[in-house]
Design a protein around this nucleic acid. Structure first.
Lengths: 144, 144
DNA sequence: TAAATAAAGGACAAAATTATCTTTTATTTT
DNA sequence: AAAATAAAAGATAATTTTGTCCTTTATTTA
């Protein structure tokens, strides 16, 4: 459903949020290890997230990535999806038609409408912080 | 969400169903024109569908593609999805983890469960025939 | 039986995605 | 100011997906 970049991006952001809640920064190596992703590719993805103000990056010997408390409390899954993929996954036509709406519906339009709406709601209402907390409590995982 | 191959495959199958309900076969050229897809690629996709008994193909001057009445009444969207993509879209982990289930859930597992279940239900319960009929009635489209 | 037709099959190309590697830039520490 | 560190940026490579082209096979028709 999501691109590999987006999957890694979500997982990395949750890992960064985990550390940020403890007041710590976390570097690339540790992130990619924690989420089991290729380092250089993950670096690219994190650059995009930083550029779009989803995370904060710092260079230098005490550098790394973190999230501000404002970011922690406001960033939703949809923010990451929009940055790394695009929102077509929950706004676009299930059959790839460029123009598909209630006025000109594709054959799958009505079947997909509900699912798309639910996906949209989930993405827009699931915060990185709550995902970090479920990870923190040990209830969920970021890697195998 | 679906691959281009799967999108074309669904649209093509609906178009074939439309013709089959009128007792007609339809050739590749007409199909790809009706759904606005690249002919040679569509041919490849139709080959796969025929190989998996979703449609029937015939060579020769009166050849083309069709669906039997049994196929018309039994083929579901999920059959096409399973053939052309795989069912990971509604059985797999939202974050791409190879092992993610209720025992070892990823951070997104519980958010996705409902959506995945709905998607599964929709795909397994939407028949090609009903999609063809909504197209026939002019309520929906297969192309722009 | 030959010709025509349309699908099947295989090879190849282009584009996109995933991933790797190298260099540059910014920051801290000594 | 130099050295070390870590991110940013850019280039390149590998893989996958999408798409194109050519040949072969199977069937019908005259």
């Amino acid at each position: 459903m999501f691109s590999k970049a987006c999957e890694y991006g979500i997982r990395a952001t949750v890992q960064i949020a985990l550390q940020s809640e403890k007041g710590l920064r976390i570097g690339l190596k540790e992130i990619s290890n924690a989420i089991d992703s290729p380092e250089p590719f993950t670096a690219k993805i994190l650059q995009q997230l930083a550029k779009n103000d989803i995370i904060i990056s710092s260079k230098g010997p005490t550098g790394g990535y973190e999230m501000s408390s404002n970011q922690l409390s406001t960033i939703m899954l949809s923010d990451i999806v929009k940055t790394l993929d695009c929102d077509l996954i929950y706004t676009g036509c299930g059959l790839g038609l460029a123009t598909c709406d209630a006025k000109n519906p594709c054959v799958l339009h009505f079947q997909f409408d509900d699912i798309r709406e639910q996906l949209k709601k989930m993405l827009e209402n699931t915060s990185i912080q709550q995902l970090a907390r479920s990870r923190e409590s040990g209830d969920t995982l970021l890697r195998l």
